[in-house]
């Protein structure tokens, strides 16, 4: 039987990029515990997924390698729902690059 602790709530909130107030943390600890207790009834089932391979040849269901300009957005459309833009790009608070040269 799993119970959800305050630490669990804090860890999961941080993984989910959510900021909780102390009141929310307390409320969610209680509510998530109740829900987890309920869903726990499947945790003890002795079954596993068979990962059925009924479909075969799914390559056929993929698309051709072609370009479709109709669905393309203009830079203005791409940026139409943001308030933080600069030089045609989305501006965010400084982060370290993961793939680019820093």
């Amino acid at each position: 039987m799993h119970t959800v602790t305050k630490n669990d709530v804090a860890r999961v909130a941080s993984l989910s990029k959510l900021t909780l107030t102390p009141a929310e943390t307390e409320l969610f600890e209680k509510q998530l515990s109740e829900i987890v207790t309920h869903i726990d009834k499947i945790a003890t089932l002795e079954i596993s997924s068979s990962q059925k391979h009924t479909e075969s040849g799914t390559l056929l269901k993929m698309r051709e390698d072609t370009i479709d300009e109709l669905n393309k957005l203009t830079p203005n459309e791409a940026l139409s729902n943001t308030n933080s833009k600069k030089s045609g790009m989305f501006e965010v608070k400084y982060v370290f690059s993961q793939t680019d040269e820093s």
Binding site: H2, V4, D8, V9, V12, A13, L15, S16, L18, F28, L32, I35, V36, I39, I42, A43, L45, I47, S48, S49
Partner: peptide, 21 residues
């Protein structure tokens, strides 16, 4: 948060994978 919890590496077998089964 519930979704993140059931997918965490420590719980994915008990919850998510079980639910798929």
């Amino acid at each position: 948060m519930l979704g993140t919890y059931v997918l965490e590496s420590g719980y994915v077998d008990a919850y998510y994978n079980k639910a798929v089964a």
